[in-house]
Structure formats: structure tokens, C-alpha cells
Design a protein around this nucleic acid. Structure first.
Length: 122
RNA sequence: CAACUGGGCCAGGUGAUCGCGGGCGCGGCGGCAACGCCGCGCGUGAGGAAAGUCCGGGCUCCGCAGGGCAAGGUGCUGGAUAACGUCCAGUGGGGGCGACCCCAAGGAAAGUGCCACAGAAAUCAAACCGCCCUUCCGGCGUGGGCUUUGGCUCACAUCGGGAACGGCAAGGGUGAAACGGCGAGGUAAGAGCUCACCGGCGGCCAGGUGACUGGCCGGCCAGGUAAACCCCACCUGGAGCAAGGCCGAAUAGGAGGGAGAUCGGGUGGCCCGCCCGUCCCUCGGGUAAGGUCGCUGGAGGUGUCUGGCAACAGGCAUCCUAGAUAGAUGAUCAUCCACGACAGAACCCGGCUUAUCGGCCCAGUUGCCUU
RNA sequence: GCGCCUGUAACUCAGAGGAUAGAGUAGCUGACUUCUAAUCAGCAAGUCGCAGGUUCGAGUCCUGCCAGGCGCG
């Protein structure tokens, strides 16, 4: 499994927003920017618009579970922004949304993409 | 049994697999070492409100903070406490049949302001209607005198009549509120003018630490509003763990001591005071990202004994119970039931307030039924 | 962590403790016009964010909440 480093600094987020490519889903938005650095870095954004602290933590934990278990090759900076509807979504809905976005963005490791396609066919 | 009152407690459980933060142990790798990384095992990991940030402290730095003015807060009494605007016990007032609950509850005879509308008048009192004495005019009546029998005049009595100088504040009406209420005496009419009772005020005595309560006596009455300004008493220095200390590359700057007229800047808003910039001397260290400490063992929990009505305090025994740093609790099942509310630590405590599914326990009140 | 502001008609805002809480825009009705716009006249519209309290009387004063917004580190 390719380890994902964490994207933390405000400048990094701003760079990905301005120069990266965005992929939109009704539950979330995925920003992708090639960085050239080996461990790909990922940042999660769950704003106060989503809900109170308990709700935000819940959404953030589910997104972290999903992104930690997804294999991503090196060389990318990713930002996942949760949208309002993510508040009501369960784990598997969020998982499907992220997988489809990641496949469209082409940031999945070898073999992962085919597995997701097979899963979606079911 | 029903309807209530007060207080306390719980906050889905159990099992399995994968994953995360901290701790401990073992093993491996790197390193002189401190230590870092990886793997395995054990154990541990959000709340009663963690929330709002409404108060109070601890802790840390600012300059250990002094004087005056201002500003803010608290406000029945006594106590508890590190402290409080909190808590406990009481006093007074209000509510409830009751258990019980509620109250920012000092001062209005220090001063100022305000009291719309209505009303005569909204506070050094005054007098619209009204009540009353006297005088004058007028009406009606009785008696006397004079008489030209038409009347004139005097006296007395009387009047829902008019006017004037005065007396009064009982009654009317207005209003949230009208120099105390009610009854009797008194009077021309009235009035604490006098008297009894009540309210309020002052003094004395008794009880109580005190708020206050009870009794006696006195004089005779003082509108409300201070969550209007204010007065009185007491309290408050400012910032906040992104406080603050240490390590520390590039780069290139400081720190300490002494002197101090002016000017400038700083310190809680202002003034005084104080400090810094300026000048001289000495020293070799200072700052950003990052790392690390602060960081959790504490006004700590539980049990018991002693003191106290209680809040609480003290003694003994026993337990260790998150410390992250973009921020750790999730995912997939099985099973049980009451089908799970409000909600996530970020330096730490004591309170207050607000949110909250369902359930349990203790003490008590009222009503009904039965024995 | 700390500090500040706002909440009144559908919208933007006024409002000295004492009226039936006002103004402009928007809305409705009528007049004018061939019709519309403009103009004129009239009408309707409010839990004064919520709950307590002070006061004879509260949109206004006090306390506690709720919602929204802003600033500093």
C-alpha cells in the first residue's frame, strides 16, 4: 500500500486549489495536482457548513478510513472537500463517491481501478 | 393507586476481524551515544454537560503593579471556600391546600432628575365642585308701629336664591399613586383637634453574633422611582498555554550595567510616578520555520472515622483514570433489549447557564380506595 | 483563545420610558391614459429574535438565552 502523507499548510492547499484539476461529485470535490514527490500527500477539508463538531468528526473519520485504505501511486497532491450532502451519507456511499472520483482523476494504483469497476458492475 | 414536590444516579451492553493516538515490555535495523524507525505482545483512550464563554481562581509573562481621578462589578444577615455573581444556614417579602418554590432584598429626613394622559392639584403644597360663620341684596312667613287701607318701615325666623371678606379639607370626581386607614368624641363646618385599634416613625428594655423579632413609651405622619443620575460599604493591575522556557540551519542582528536636560515612544483610560529609545562601558549571544518542555498526580476520586444543623474541614486507608498537535474512537458483522437523546477534551480546576431519548433509586405532600 | 456588532412590515432602515410603533421601496384598489410606465389618492401588512424581571407603563432599562455577522492573535 502506498502511504499517504498529510497535507497541512495553508499554502499547500491554496496551490492545489489554484493549479490543480477538480473533479466534482454531489458528496465531495477532489482536487489533484502532480507534485513529483514520492509519497503522495492528501488533505481533508470538512468545513463548519457541514455541521457541529461531532458531525464534522464523523465525516472526517470516514473520509480518512477511505483514503487510508486506497492505494495511490506517488507524485500527487490531493485535496478532498466534503460537501453538505456528505452529512447524511453512510460509509459505503462515501466510499463509492471517492472511488469514482479517483478513477476519473487517474490517481489509482495498478489493479485498484479494475477492482472498483468490477465492484460498480455489481 | 393517582396527581405532584425535592434530591441523587445511569448515558446501550457483550463477542469477533481490520485500522488509529499515548504508555510499557521484547526483538530487529541505523547511530559512539542520547535517540529514531520497523515488527510483535500487553494494557489504555472524550462528557454530564467536554458546549455557551457568563463569573471565579491556579499557572505564566509583562515592570511584583505605588498615589490620585475615572471605569466596572457586587449589594438582607451569618457562615463555607483558593476565590466567586457559587454553595449552606437563617431573616424579611410574595405564591401554593400542602410537600415546597420564587425574590439585584442597602440608602428616597445628602442632593438632582422624571412621574405621560386624566385631574383643581403629582409634593417648600394647593383649593375646582363642595361644607360653614358673618355681612349685604333678594324671596316667603310671623309679630309690632305708622297709614290716605294701595302700602311703608322695624324686629325675628326661614330659604335648592345671588354676591363679598373669611374658615375647612370630611365628601365628590381623576389617576398606578392625592401629607395614613377605620370608628367615636368634638365643632359653625371641620381637621390627630382629642381618644381606642391598626400601619408607619423615633426612643428604651429583652432575646439573638447579626439580618430581625417581641414588649413598653413617645410624639403625631415623611408619595413613587436608585435594573434614572447618585450616596454608602466591599471587590477588581493587564494580558493570556498561540502564556512562557529551552534546542536551533540559512541570514544577519543583540544582551547586561551606568549616566540621564530636552524630545519621542511604552506601561489598564487620564495625571503623577516608572521604564525604553539617546550617550558611555562590558559581554558573546539573539530571531523565523521546525522540534522539545509546559502537558497532566490534582483545591483529584472512592471508602471510613471525627467536628459542624449544613455547605465544608481534618485524619486514616486505597486507586491512578486521555494528553493529541490539521488534531487519535472508525469500518464490517453477530446477538440482546428499553432500539440508543444532547453532543467531541486542546493548560487545569470551582461554579452558573443552556441542550438532552429513555430509565432507575431515595425522601416527602395531597387526594381516593381497602384493611 | 480573546474582543465587538446586529436582530423592528416581504426588503432597506427610523424610533428621548408615555399615541393605534413610523418612513422609503415593493404589494393591492381607484383616478389619469387607447394600453403601459410615471404621477396622484387610498388600503393592507408587525409575537419589535426568545424568556423572565424592574416600572403605573418596556421596542427602549436589567438578566439569561437564540440566530447571524465581523475583527485580532
Amino acid at each position: 500500500m502506498a502511504l499517504l502523507a498529510r497535507l497541512k499548510r495553508p499554502e499547500d492547499f491554496r496551490r492545489v486549489y489554484t493549479y490543480g484539476t477538480s473533479y466534482v461529485h454531489r458528496l465531495m470535490v477532489l482536487y489533484v495536482l502532480p507534485s513529483g514527490k514520492d509519497p503522495s500527500r492528501i488533505g481533508l477539508v470538512v468545513s463548519k457548513k457541514i455541521g457541529k463538531a461531532v458531525v464534522r468528526n464523523k465525516v472526517k473519520r470516514r473520509l480518512r478510513e477511505i483514503t487510508d485504505s486506497t492505494r495511490v501511486p506517488g507524485g500527487f497532491d490531493l485535496v478532498v472537500v466534503a460537501r453538505g450532502r456528505a452529512r447524511e451519507a453512510n460509509f459505503w456511499t462515501l466510499h463509492g463517491a471517492f472511488s469514482s472520483l479517483a478513477r476519473r482523476a487517474g490517481v489509482l494504483a495498478e489493479g485498484e481501478s479494475a477492482a472498483i469497476l468490477a465492484e460498480e458492475d455489481k
